[in-house]
Write a protein that binds this DNA or RNA. Structure first.
Length: 368
RNA sequence: GGAAAGGUGGCAGAGCGGCUGAAUGCGUCGGUUUCGAAAACCGAUAGUGCCGCAAGGCACUCGGGGGUUCGAAUCCCCCCCUUUCCGCCA
């Protein structure tokens, strides 16, 4: 979430940033609400200070045997006034809190302004597209033909949007996961985490999945637990509420998890086969780092992701997302897309973002 | 799921409803001493928000939330977590 103190100081910066994202946010209403809350808080605190002083005096007077009846009554009235103000403030504060959680992270000033994915720019391209003497099949044909992917039986188990990997297909997936983790831990200095796949709402809130994407997430309502849509949720919230030692930064974590996404409304174009499914495996890399190194660290992290594609010899390109296509929590995003000869298209395989202080605030994650 | 015990500052561990935002010990930081260090001694050491140029002040925080009271770490209610025992365990 954004820093209200910053909003107070530079409201125009935020107006501009949200406009660039194509988000309509009523900055004036936000500021007015904030002002009211602060004023009420100030008033009730002054009253409370009086009450506290009066209480102290009553205690001392009572010990010397003086009559304190009138003083008690006075203190009670002041206390009631303070309580009334606090109640008002509570209501407004709740409104403000709910509102601020729905506002996306402003993009960094350097991010190209654009309305949607059509205005993303290609930062780099690596390798060459492979050539074939025949027409390569898309994976939804090739996989079943090789008996390494089974979409039909997956549907029998779980409905549309799932896949069963079989034989060498399952083994290939397992090998990639294992190799990714090994590369990140041994070559790039990451610490591997094996994390829960079910998390409490606070964790989903901390990384920005809630409240906005509640309808895109799976939940076990009975236990108030959510299935993670990405390892980013447990990994980032791992240190939630903590004050980290600045000397210890950056903290670099990697984790493999299945990811669960409802993908409501996504059925249709570009969703065939396992291109977009309700459950998939992902190896995540996360840095917790200081603001001043954030930009440089994003490039390093992106390099680590790219390195894997290079070692696999995959032809890929890096997109710099424009403001209109950058995700809710992100301030700056590069997408890595691999060339898919079978579908004659680029497929997103990785997304590298800086979240600035957005998630840190939501997750109450600090350093000093 | 049932029962019992417990959750206090970086850690350990006190805490008659007011003089306790918190004794004491350890740790940490600064100083004295020393050629240097250790030891000893002296002093300082929670967080957040708000006001203030600053010095400083005010409010809130003793697992979380309510309540009683002029006043709650301390009394009452609800919840969460930890430990132990019992039960269950596709």
């Amino acid at each position: 979430m954004i820093d209200l103190a910053q909003l107070r100081k530079n409201p125009d910066d935020f107006r501009q940033a949200w406009r660039a994202r194509g988000v309509s946010a009523d900055v004036d209403a936000l500021l007015a609400l904030d002002e009211q809350v602060r004023a009420l808080k100030h008033q009730s605190e002054s009253l409370q200070a009086e009450v506290n002083a009066a209480s102290k005096a009553i205690g001392q007077a009572a010990r010397t045997g003086q009559d304190v009846g009138a003083a008690k009554e006075k203190a009670r009235q002041l206390g009631d006034q303070a309580k009334a103000l606090d109640e008002q403030r509570g209501i407004l504060e709740q409104q403000l809190g709910a509102l601020i959680l729905t506002l996306p992270n402003p993009c960094l000033a350097a991010v190209p302004v654009g309305k949607d994915s059509s205005e993303n720019t290609v930062a780099t391209t690596w390798g060459e597209p492979p050539t074939f003497a025949f027409r390569p099949k898309p994976h939804w044909d090739l996989g079943p033909a090789l008996d390494i992917m089974d979409f039909d039986r997956a549907t029998k188990l779980s409905g549309s949007g799932f896949v069963v990997l079989k034989g060498q297909g399952a083994r290939l997936s397992r090998a990639l996961i294992s190799w990714f983790l090994d590369e990140h831990t041994t070559s790039h200095g990451y610490t591997e985490l094996a994390v829960p796949l079910l998390v409490q709402p606070q964790a989903m809130l901390g990384t920005g999945q809630l409240p906005k994407f509640a309808d895109q997430s799976y939940a076990c309502r009975e236990d108030d637990l959510w299935l993670i849509p990405t390892a980013e949720v447990p990994v980032t919230n791992y240190h939630g509420g903590e004050i980290l030692d600045a000397e210890a930064l950056p903290l670099k974590y990697t984790a493999h998890t299945p990811c669960f996404r409802r993908e409501a409304g996504a059925a249709g174009l570009g969703t065939r086969g396992m291109t977009r499914v309700h459950q998939f495996d992902k190896v995540e890399i996360v840095w917790l780092t200081a603001p001043e190194r954030s930009d440089a660290d994003l490039m390093t992290l992106r390099g680590h992701a790219e390195r894997l594609l290079q070692q696999l010899g995959l032809h890929y390109r890096v997109l710099e997302l424009c403001t209109g296509d950058t995700g809710f929590s992100s301030a700056h995003t590069y997408d890595l897309e691999v060339w898919s000869p079978g579908t004659d298209s680029w497929l997103e395989v990785s997304s590298c973002s800086t979240l600035s202080d957005f998630q840190a605030r939501r997750a109450n994650l600090r350093y000093r």
